[in-house]
Design a protein around this nucleic acid. Sequence first.
DNA 1: GCAAGTGGTCTCGATATGAAACCAGATTGG
DNA 2: CCAATCTGGTTTCATATCGAGACCACTTGC
Lengths: 150, 150
Amino acid sequence: MVKRVSLWDAGCPVARALDVIGDWWSLLIIRDAFDGVRRFNEFQSGLGIAKGMLATRLRDLTERGILETAPASDGSAYKEYVLTEKGRGLFLVIVALRQWGEDHLYGPDEPRSSLIAAETGAPVARLELHAGDGRVLTWDDTEVIKINPI
Amino acid sequence: MVKRVSLWDAGCPVARALDVIGDWWSLLIIRDAFDGVRRFNEFQSGLGIAKGMLATRLRDLTERGILETAPASDGSAYKEYVLTEKGRGLFLVIVALRQWGEDHLYGPDEPRSSLIAAETGAPVARLELHAGDGRVLTWDDTEVIKINPI
DNA sequence: GCAAGTGGTCTCGATATGAAACCAGATTGG
DNA sequence: CCAATCTGGTTTCATATCGAGACCACTTGC
């Protein structure tokens, strides 16, 4: 059997994160969940995903504690999928992807959605990485230390 | 022909970003590139990826302007793959994934790699999303406005 | 009660993946 | 300078996964 590769045990949090949400659909489902999508059909029609795929992904994400099911908020007998605390923790991953996409994948005139602060309606600030003392760090100001090499 | 779905034209920068780097291997390759990996064999042995897959991914990432090839820095006749400016822009995506993985996918005693400021050796600060006026925003302080609905 | 909507499952053909064989050019050892 | 080995791939093949759509049970609306 050809097994899909997993780097869960590589000792790298990035690899482990991608093991959980690194496939094509998961982050799109999570993005929609942040935008308030909750019902199976909403995800399906919004993403154009095959129903079988969606059922599998929703089950996986639920098993992995990123989504949980809840009774429908409109009082019907159906259930809804909502982000758990763990799932909501992925917000900055989505934001980082969004800012990178805005920077590098759109022409100046291309229409696109935008993330704003709900209270003021103003665009959010760019993400920045800071050192403990507050200085802004770029990629080559940092290094990864391997606590458990290979 | 069953075509792999693309959401490039959905008007969402997140979808477009995932269209470019949303597959299983791309972000792992990029993560390794941030860690200084440059040569085909280094990627291959470090990730355990099949050579055919790696060749395809490196070609795609190069075509998409995330990696570029350069003469080997050791003077040999081989080439190296290095991140472009656009590729380096993905740094915060990797950092966000890393912090989420550290928070939610590791037990307190599990060994893992860690991101530090090179100059001081101290761990980097957590990423935060700020409003234009500096306040920290959580996911439900924000909303996405659709400039081009559908 | 009946049609439509919801939330799936099942099946099928197309595609992508992983492993391994193979190969040409570059490098190294002797 | 010749052979062995290393590097950076390509090709092939079996299998796994994906996408589309048929199908189905239960719920809701009328």
